[in-house]
Design a protein around this nucleic acid. Structure first.
Lengths: 201, 201
DNA sequence: CCAACAATGTTTACGATGTCAACATTACAA
DNA sequence: TTGTAATGTTGACATCGTAAACATTGTTGG
């Protein structure tokens, strides 16, 4: 091996790692392939040996971010082993907290335009790995099966219940992290107040 | 007047109009100043006589989009003149419907990174014109003042109630329009089911 | 009426970016 | 060992945002 720095060895994972870091530090708008390449100490077209284009790298980064997100949700669930209602509340709180602390991840995990350009392979990969959504969904399913509410007027349609729960926490996360909801107090405390009220579940 | 096409007259409003159109047609990612300029039949730097930079034009477009959005919400409210509960439900439904039908507007109206770069003037302009948020907020305020619920466990904190209602509809809108919530049926029907249940208000 | 001047539009130029083609280097398998 | 695939580099090109210098037009005070 004459020039030991020519082949970077595991450049692919390095690109993903530095890409995620760059995304955190400089934001989605200022993310560029060339910066990621430079961060890896490699020429500006080297990424094209591992990813077909910019979006392809972003998708890979997204999968990593989704994994981190899912770990947070699972951890929340595990903290209430035998109380499914608390599991949901804690999971919701964690959901909001995660995106408030990592605003850029919202751009990553919820990009409508990205899904349009997905080819079949990538689409399948995304579906298979969308663990956060599976986690959320499955928890609600368990809640409903254990808790057959016969209250008149409550949401009985499973899909409606999932959309309502998921939508609530997602919307709260977005409004806080985009600073569209202006409030002088503690956002997370307000979130806790909502999720632990009787109105929600 | 030798060359009658030199001065475009009201280029500013033309740029905003064509910009919004371009945004609708090609999406946020493919939006460029030069395309807008070309659409107006003008050189690629002409926009700089009316906007300081790209973001400045986008802000102007955002204000126009916000106005359209707000009109929709107001219309929904007006359709139930004396029933504030129905006003909120209908407004929420309209909120979701609007963004499902205009997915790009989500990128416009809820951009965290944009607000970071705002100077004081633009920030004030945005605040003053953020009618949708004012509309939403005021409606909830009226609801709470007319409807002093003493139910144990219900949300009594005004800010919490606003964040919950707003977050719910916003989250539903995002999840549907980004196609993250996958469902084989009618999304808007599901939304209606949620908002008209007793669980929500 | 006309001479400044402000407003508005154009030309040119530069650096950053995504991406492609051609080439160089290395690893590995026959 | 030799050829071929994998991986990295160089160079080029089009698009983009943006600044500087210049051109044209509308307006206004003398």
């Amino acid at each position: 091996m004459v020039n030991e720095s020519y082949h970077h060895e595991n450049l692919k994972s390095e690109l993903i790692k530095n890409g995620l870091k760059l995304l955190d530090e400089e934001g989605y708008e200022n993310f560029s392939l060339r910066k990621v390449a430079k961060a890896c100490g490699v020429s500006h077209t080297a990424p094209y040996r591992h990813f077909r284009n910019k979006d392809d790298l972003i998708i890979a980064i997204t999968l990593k971010a989704e994994h981190k997100f899912n770990s947070s949700l699972q951890e929340a669930i595990n903290s209430y082993p035998n109380d499914i209602k608390s599991q949901i509340k804690e999971m919701g709180y964690t959901y909001v907290k995660f995106f408030v602390e990592n605003p850029e991840y919202l751009r990553l995990l919820f990009r409508s335009d990205l899904k349009k350009h997905l080819n079949n392979e990538n689409c399948k990969i995304l579906k298979d790995n969308v663990q956060p959504f599976g986690t959320f969904y499955n928890t609600i399913v368990r809640y409903q099966s254990e808790n057959q509410s016969n209250d008149a007027g409550s949401i009985t349609d499973l899909n409606a219940l999932v959309l309502a729960c998921w939508g609530l926490v997602h919307g709260i996360a977005v409004l806080i992290s985009t600073k569209d909801f202006v409030y002088e107090g503690d956002y997370l405390e307000l979130t806790r107040k909502i999720l632990w009220s009787e109105t929600f579940l």
